[in-house]
Design a protein around this nucleic acid. Structure first.
Lengths: 348, 348
DNA sequence: TTGTAGGCGTTATCAA
DNA sequence: TTGATAACGCCTACAA
């Protein structure tokens, strides 16, 4: 007798009743307006307005076997690098009518959780921004019976046959080394990224290739154990300070390490770039506003995110069948600011 | 005759067949294991293993009228402040079995889109990190027939009867002003946040209350038009430089503005804190690593995110009925670093 | 152009 | 404790 609870959301049936047509016609009027007469279309629109109808995605997903959502798995949302990429992904996805689910802090052992996500029909595809996921398990997803549309972005998974959208880390790091060499530096160090990370090893290799191409000196004690955080950079600074013979320039694996490094050497009495030039990698927003403003390799983060989302949705909506993995490789750009200068020996 | 396409994902029926029980029993064995016999439970588990079954969330959502996902709407994912909060939200949601959908760049006119999200059964609740959404429209959501579980976090919506999780912006800003006053400053300026933003106005009001409580001088040309970005801070720096009589300390509405400000005054020849002390607000990770390390009011961002997610899920899962809006107010903490010092007049 | 009918996969109800 | 059944809301093949 009583109805104390909230009314149910209006369904397509409610709309149909008010518009005096069948539910099927409402569905058509909404999804393919051209296949219905003007009069019908108007009546349906009006009925939708009156009822406040919006379609039930769950029902639609169940029927169509498509969730119209993608899952973005990343190692650390809190990191400005990833959050900017996510921003671009979200924008592109929204433009194409897809929701974005985020899964943060993905680790090697979480592929089972990933698997559930898809088999469970919550998301139609996976955008992976974390290269540390197990390649074998992942490969299994992209084959029948799972056949998961998958794009790996930012961090490639070496030797694995996935669609990827990445930047040219090796070449960019080599460019960075060459820039420092051209500025006159002959003693150049590197703050390495985290161990086991693809980006780390590519940037390290590119850096070493740069040195080698100029036959520059390479010393093990100038290759600082590092990481991608400011604290890692600070630790490298302490290591540098302790050296008898110090490099005059340092290339950090990313901007945050560079910033932590500069901050710590300042605290310890060295100046950047007077005593040591420092380069970063990424061009985070802070890079331009740091003191000194940071010379860095700019990664096109927005482009990476947008392209990756585009490619993934294309994959989801594309005709099923043999698909050849595509690799997008975007270029980074040298941004010269004030944290680098010629070495003391070349200054007046 | 041919089956070229990928096989369909296994359903509960497939499991039932293999386990030689009914689909209903499989469902029970999975959701309430205590209500089936051990033998049945084992047979089902084995069948699940064999088939690789995972349940179809769409079907489940349709049946249960619950998506087990929440929507987080925020003004800017790319901003480290929000991305940290989002991180905490995601963790708590995952712990309780909820997915997280993100909607970035929410604006005043997007409430229709929001509405669709819920009526469409994609998400069971809304976590709003953006105070600029229209309060009236929003209020309509929390009433029948929509009755949307809603938590507003970070930015409160003034006068609106929502559950909120915020920090004490007014009091924290007042504390900041008092700290500067106690350090001996008598000429203190403020870099205002964006216009029309609740946080901005609360922080400004708190700041002014602090000044007033000490009967300190208040000048309009020391209240700098600002914003929350580094560029906004840089603009305020230019304005300060142009003044005949400058404040000896400045309280910025957030860390980014403070950093942009310091960066720009350094470029223009002033030193922080020697010529001007600067305080921020938030305690972003960069604050500790900036040069000079930034004195700031630390907001408990992780706690805000976690509490907000908890509260929202409680709301979603709670018994329907009259619910009294709750307001969580967390405290901020003064973090003293090197960007503030006594004014020149008090130094030797 | 429109309507009818069936089923997507799951779970709650009820009966056995 | 278990099984049969119906229903959640939608879309599409087919018939009219």
């Amino acid at each position: 007798m009583e109805r104390e609870t909230a009314e149910k959301a209006p369904t397509i049936q409610d709309v149909a009743r008010i518009a005096q047509v069948s539910a099927a016609t409402v569905s058509r009027a909404l999804s393919r307006p051209e296949r219905v007469t003007d009069a019908t279309r108007n009546r349906v629109s009006e009925a939708v307005r009156i009822t406040g109808y919006t379609l039930n995605q769950s029902a639609r997903s169940l029927r169509l076997r498509a969730a119209r959502a993608i899952l973005v798995a990343l190692p650390d949302i809190g990191n400005p690098f990833f959050s900017t990429v996510l921003d671009a992904i979200e924008r592109e996805a929204a433009r194409r009518g897809y929701g974005v689910l985020v899964a943060n802090r993905f680790a090697r052992d979480n592929t089972d959780a990933l698997r559930d996500y898809f088999l469970s029909n919550r998301a139609d595809g996976l955008l992976l921004l974390d290269g540390s996921v197990d390649a074998e398990q992942l490969a299994a997803f992209t084959r029948a019976p799972i056949n998961l549309p998958l794009i790996v972005a930012c961090e490639s998974i070496p030797g694995a046959p996935f669609h990827t959208v990445i930047t040219d880390n090796f070449y960019a790091a080599k460019q960075a080394a060459l820039y420092l060499l051209q500025s006159g530096h002959t003693r150049i160090g590197h703050i390495k990224g985290p161990k086991g990370n693809v980006l780390s090893s590519e940037r390290e290799a590119g850096f070493l290739a740069g040195l080698a191409s100029a036959s520059a000196e390479r010393r093990e004690d100038w290759m600082f154990t590092g990481g991608f955080s400011m604290d890692d950079g600070a630790r490298a600074a302490k290591a540098l300070i302790a050296l008898k013979i110090r490099p005059t320039a340092v290339f950090a694996a990313n901007d945050e390490a560079a910033i932590g490094f500069i901050s710590e050497i300042s605290r310890l009495g060295l100046k950047c770039p007077d005593d040591v030039s420092v380069m970063g990698f990424d061009d985070l927003e802070i890079a331009a506003h740091f003191q000194p403003p940071l010379t860095t390799m700019r990664q096109p983060r927005e482009a990476v995110g947008r392209l990756a989302a585009e490619a993934l949705i294309d994959l989801i909506e594309g005709a099923p069948g043999k698909i050849v993995p595509k690799q997008f490789v975007l270029s980074s750009e040298l941004i010269v600011r004030k944290s680098t200068a010629p070495p003391p020996s070349l200054r007046s």
